[in-house]
């Protein structure tokens, strides 16, 4: 075996071991490194004690945003397709905060099971298109319904 080949085999072994170690570390970090918890995660954990600071993420459910009488407080439902969480928030929301769009909320559960948010961030998806096209897509969806 030439020295060149010995080095190649050695380097490849080291690289494979490193990738293996990194993959192990990342899968172990999977839950801890999550930036937010989805309603399904919370259901899986069997609920979160009231008052504990946490970050909730998911989609704002269709037609769920309700403005309360004081004009600054809103209520909406966060869903991930299965589980749902009711959220209350007082303040200004980002421009991209919309129904059927992603949301990430910092806050805590109250004793009544409603999540009280301190901050609201909007999460958008990976699709980009001109407004006319989105309108057309919406129209066909409405027609199909």
């Amino acid at each position: 075996m030439k020295a060149k080949h010995q080095r190649l085999v050695l380097v490849l072994l080291v690289v494979a071991a490193m990738i293996g170690a990194a993959l192990l570390a990342m899968s172990a970090l999977r839950d801890q490194a999550a930036y937010f918890y989805s309603p399904a995660d919370i259901a899986r954990l069997g609920g979160v004690p009231p008052g504990q600071a946490m970050r909730l993420g998911g989609m704002v459910a269709d037609k769920s945003i309700v403005h309360e009488a004081d004009g600054v407080t809103i209520r909406f439902t966060v869903t991930d397709g299965g589980a749902t969480v009711l959220v209350r928030y007082k303040g200004i929301v980002p421009d991209l905060f919309k129904e059927n769009s992603g949301v990430v909320a910092d806050g805590r559960f109250g004793t009544d099971g409603v999540f009280v948010a301190d901050t609201i961030l909007a999460k958008h998806d990976e699709r980009y298109m001109p407004p006319q096209l989105a309108g057309a897509e919406h129209k066909t969806e409405t027609l199909a319904r």
Partner: peptide
């Protein structure tokens, strides 16, 4: 690869990749 997979492995604020081997989720005009 950790940067590349970060939006798949963990819940993140950043959206997943728009352009993948499977195609592009960005309209041609954009």
């Amino acid at each position: 690869p950790i940067i590349n997979r970060s939006v798949v492995w963990w819940n993140s604020l950043h959206q997943p990749a728009s352009i993948t081997l499977g195609g592009s989720k960005i309209d041609a005009a954009i």
